[in-house]
Simulated assay, not measured.
Amino acid sequence: MKDKTIDYILRATWQAVARMYNEEAGKYGATMSIGFALLSIDKEKGISSTALGPQMGMEATSLTRTLKSMEEKGLIVRKKNPVDGRGVIIHLTKLGREKRDLSKEVVLKFNEAVKQRVSQQKMDHFVEVAEVINELIAEKQIFATEQPEAEIENKAK
């Protein structure tokens, strides 16, 4: 991937990982999103629907579709929040817990396959670079000093 931009490498790699997970999940009638949701739901306590979206980094509409599909497949049940009756807590069913364990095995298998081919030092550097990228984005340090052309033109007038 020589001479590729960082964002291209990240995107191409993530798309390959997503295809791999979706292909594996498809064998079980699921999707990568369903697997990720299963792993994000606490096995014992469940999770509020409002907390799940941000935890997964999913938009509300995508999450709603995923949860509906999971409910139809018998993986989750929604229960009223006992603390706040307006909210909903999502709980895994017995089948959901089984599929969660399967999803965890798939993720661990992927991690192990990568770790067998990449030294610990390179993994540490990879994590370090990813953390720097996330910090730059979170702190809005990439485009913060640039001003849109229209804004520059308005100031010149």
Rank of each mutant, 00 (worst) to 15 (best):
E105T: 08
A60G: 13
E44M: 05
T5V: 09
V114R: 07
Q141C: 13
A60C: 04
Y28E: 14
K4L: 14
D101M: 07
K2F: 14
T13Q: 13
A25E: 03
Q55V: 02
Y28T: 10
R65P: 10
I6H: 12
D124N: 05
L10M: 15
G53H: 02
R86Q: 01
N81F: 03
H125Y: 15
S103Y: 03
S69C: 03
S69V: 06
S103P: 06
E24R: 13
I152L: 14
I142Q: 00
T31G: 07
G57Q: 05
L39T: 02
E23V: 05
K79A: 00
I76E: 01
N111L: 13
T5W: 12
L95S: 11
K99T: 08
E72N: 08
K73A: 13
T66K: 03
E98F: 06
E105S: 09
R97D: 09
R19I: 11
A30T: 07
D84Q: 10
A144S: 15
I142F: 02
I76Q: 00
E139I: 02
D42G: 03
I41C: 03
H125G: 12
A25Y: 06
V88N: 03
G35L: 01
M123A: 11
R117E: 12
S69Q: 08
L108R: 00
I142T: 01
M20E: 09
R78K: 08
E128C: 07
E149G: 05
S119K: 02
L95H: 04
T66W: 08
F143T: 11
E149W: 11
K2A: 09
T61A: 08
E59W: 10
S48W: 01
A113H: 13
I6M: 11
Y21K: 05
E112D: 10
E112S: 13
G85S: 15
H91Q: 14
K27Q: 11
K99M: 13
V114A: 00
I133T: 00
A51Y: 04
Q55P: 00
K94I: 08
E151R: 05
S62H: 15
Q15V: 05
E71P: 04
K79Q: 05
A130Q: 02
E71R: 10
S119I: 00
R65D: 14
K45G: 05
V106P: 07
I76M: 03
Q141G: 14
Q147P: 01
D7M: 09
A138Q: 04
I133W: 03
V129I: 13
Q116D: 15
V132G: 11
